[in-house]
Design a protein around this nucleic acid. Structure first.
Lengths: 217, 217, 217, 217
DNA sequence: CATGAATGAGCCTTCATTCAT
DNA sequence: CATGAATGAAGGCTCATTCAT
């Protein structure tokens, strides 16, 4: 790590002076994180070693320690990066749906699609979230991601209610818990080899979203 | 093991001849599993070593390998044992509740109580379930436990509907996914230090159970 | 082992008083050794544990320690028992062959047959003999077996010379070394899956035995 | 390993680019193998642990795993390295002998010398070859070494026949089996403490080599 | 006599981390 | 900046042996 720690580098990012250096640093982190995501999502947190990550990338083993303080730093960066992209995609659905059914269907389909296509990524998230129940140091970041997901779900539900001239019958945490529960169980089914898991999730999500609002008037 | 493998012992359990011997063996397994549960639930699957488990018990390191074929065998036994007890407790609530509100309240309170009191155990279960998304070898047992929990939830919902002269509006998998989702999020909150998590779960579960049935007539 | 050690039991075998007890003891040893031979010849000395031996027999793990002082004691008993039987069989060939060609062919065929049929036993012997190069304690017994084999080979060679009215051109140790070398290489070939190893050994042994004597007159 | 596996390194050796790096890696392997050979030849394959090897060297325990994939990889490298050197030495004798007697004596003396001086190394080879009768995974490498030895012996025999204007009376495999048999028995004698084993081997080898060819014309 | 429960040393291997270059 | 060599603690597991019953 030389005379400069990772923390010091992070701090530097606020200086304008070393802006170019920082960008390069951040870029490198993103690049490494992206590469690591492949291995991580394939093996899970506990079973993945930094060596393995390096081996499956074009980078050396030492460079990981150079850009990340430790394994936790790395994996958190990975998952945050990924989940941010997820949220962005759902919000796009919210933004482009004009009728309640469009939204309902778009949301349900979106969930089911990513569940199947990015199954490995999602299981990594659940793995990480489970670890956070044991490891204090994971909690802040996991909690933050969790809240961003809850807000995303709530934007779906509220917008759906709005489009349908209705009101939600549950609170935001409950809505998130429900959809998250269904997603997680669908994922387990899918990973277990059940090819119908996607369609089933679509149907369930549509049904539940529909019944989660009470029509006004 | 000695002249017989662990598997052979299991088979023997059907013989009456060696019944006493088998009981002793099973008792010891239960005893060890119980002891292991303490460490396991404190550290999680990946961070717990068999040596650690042994050290926190009154047994030697070798005895664990004597009674369990490997780490997976041990942890699965632990969790199965624990979850079987859980299911039993919920079924007792079903059996003794005379009115829908009794059941609803009993169930909600039961969930919240165990969530807080046995938080460590529950996080171990979620840890294990997450691992099963990566480790093929975990899936059979985890799946079996999952199904037993789903059936338990469905007994609650059906009985509630029956007592309330109503019909469920969701399928069994969806019902389980919902309650499991809420439980899991409540657990994270509780472990994160939120003392209101229990009460919140009670309220949420009551609300959702109530809205999961459609009154006949 | 109680108050009586295995050694004391062996000594007792010279007393007539406890003759019946001793016979039973020796019988048990033979029985156990025979059973152990199966596992031992399948896995080799180093890879075989006493547990494994017990598991593949009808005996308990503890009984092995009761009848044999240790692993070495057991394996030596096994191999001695087996090799004594081998020697007896070859001597039968010597005794019943009336012409030099009978003997030559009988010997060559006998070697090839046991090489293929009892391949596992023979590799155990070579394993043990290799171990004796490292382990002082093996040497006495291995040496004794080796000498008995050499004497057996020499009976073959001498008798062959006699029947052919010829004289051996090599000494006893050299003759043994040669046939042993060919047997060992044939065995490796056979175990490596070469089905022609048997026939090849027959031919080679016949050729070499024939050229090992110088015709008188 | 680091970002590359041991296998990948081996592949790299064909690139010129990373030639120096590879050489360093190969050098280290050779160095470690050489060091390991001391312990290995003293204790034998099964009784030698990697820890023991490391302790008897100037390296740490982990470094062995860094340079070799596993114990088998290590020991095979050791023995191959050693046996290649052996073959080279015999070929030198073939190359410099001008008369049949020179060759015969040079070969016989060479065998006897290495038998005594490198007794420990040779017993390791026989140990390994015995193990290969049980362990499939050893066979390829052991077989390869065996064939290289057979070819070496055959070069001796053919050259001897050539120099003596004679023809071999046995095939290559038989010749190898004979000399190998004599060497092995001589080694056992020597290790058993018989100081005359060397001279005896010399005499036997000379005698047998002489009688293995048929003079032309 | 015989059993099999229990022990604890020891084995191979993996890994995060450090450090010289 | 980056590399990859080296470390040593720790993990899962096996095993000969001991011992109470």
């Amino acid at each position: 790590m030389d005379a400069v720690t990772v923390e010091q580098r992070a701090e530097r990012s606020r200086d304008r002076v070393s802006r170019r250096r920082v960008d390069k640093f951040a870029d490198r982190r993103a690049q490494l994180a992206n590469s690591a995501l492949l291995t991580l999502s394939e093996l899970g947190y506990a079973r993945t070693s930094l060596r393995e990550i390096a081996q499956n990338s074009e980078f050396s083993h030492g460079v990981l320690h150079y850009y990340f303080t430790d394994k936790v730093d790395l994996i958190m960066h990975c998952v945050k990066q990924y989940k941010a992209e997820c949220v962005r995609r759902y919000d796009e659905i919210v933004g482009t749906s004009l009728t309640p059914d469009d939204l309902k269907h778009g949301f349900a389909t979106g969930l089911a699609t990513t569940m199947c296509e990015d199954a490995s990524m999602h299981r990594l998230w659940y793995d990480l979230r489970s670890q956070s129940l044991f490891e204090e140091s994971f909690r802040a970041d996991v909690g933050e991601i969790d809240r961003s997901l809850e807000r995303m779900i709530w934007r779906i539900v509220s917008r759906y209610a709005e489009l349908a001239d209705a009101s939600p019958t549950v609170t935001s945490p409950v809505a998130y818990a429900m959809f998250d529960g269904m997603f997680q169980h669908g994922l387990a089914k899918f990973i277990g080899g059940d090819a119908t898991a996607g369609l089933e999730l679509t149907a369930n999500v549509e049904h539940v979203l529909g019944s989660l609002v009470f029509h006004n008037g």
